[in-house]
Design a protein around this nucleic acid. Structure first.
Length: 218
DNA sequence: CTCCCGATAT
DNA sequence: ATATCAGGAG
């Protein structure tokens, strides 16, 4: 397991590699961000952006999503995958936004997670990106990178990973760290083909060294 | 734990 | 052919 100092060496290196790490989901307001993050479950953000380009032209407000049938909304987001659940959640979410929150997206994490299709990770992204609150959303990339590097343990749950990261990183660095970990995981420490042979963190990475040894034998 | 699910990379 | 993708709900 890496200690605090080693973790910060890793994060500094990631900042050098990806100095402009940011949210890549296209959005112009908190409402669009909620929809985009909800759609992004088990789907690349590149594909989400492709779909939301037309989607956000057609649907501007919670009202707009409720004016069409469930089937029509399904068709509009079909290429995303998991589209039946997502379409249903979007309409229910819009209904609640209008009824309970005056048509606005709530700023509190505790309120956001009550919305259908919005879990802990989505809520963290929204409070962080839309409202500037410190948060450390743990998605598939953050989890994979944290486990490979040894920032946390392999058997840790997503919630345990989040708690470990928050404990070892200063609060005012949560949001930027979150985006660095995502970029590092998405473009460098990739799930199927991690670039260990050109990784500046190889000396610190238990998984990377294991993989490099395997490569030597081949 | 399982199910939801199309698009893309490997 | 199979693994993976800014997960969440039952």
């Amino acid at each position: 397991m890496l200690n605090k100092k080693q973790i910060h060496i890793c994060l500094d290196e990631m900042r050098k590699m990806f100095p402009d790490a940011h949210c890549e989901l296209r959005h112009e307001n908190p409402f669009e961000l909620v929809i985009a993050v909800l759609l992004s479950a088990q789907c690349t953000d590149a594909l989400v952006n492709k779909v939301t380009k037309g989607l956000f032209e057609k649907y501007k407000t919670p009202h707009d999503y409720l004016e069409v049938t469930l089937e029509e909304l399904q068709q509009d987001i079909r290429s995303i995958g998991l589209y039946r659940n997502k379409a249903k959640n979007i309409q229910k979410l819009c209904e609640i936004l209008l009824k309970e929150y005056g048509g606005e997206v709530p700023k509190e994490h505790s309120e956001l997670v009550k919305l259908p299709g919005v879990g802990r990770k989505t809520a963290n992204v929204v409070v962080s990106v839309a409202f500037g609150e410190p948060a450390l959303a743990v998605d598939t990339h953050v989890e994979r990178v944290s486990k490979r590097l040894g920032i946390c343990r392999w058997k840790d749950s997503v919630l345990e990973v989040e708690k470990t990261l928050m404990g070892k990183i200063p609060r005012d660095e949560w949001s930027e760290t979150h985006h660095r970990l995502i970029f590092f995981g998405r473009y460098h420490c990739k799930a199927q083909s991690p670039q260990c042979d050109v990784c500046p963190l190889l000396d610190l990475c238990r998984e990377g060294q294991k993989r490099m040894k395997k490569k030597e034998k081949i």
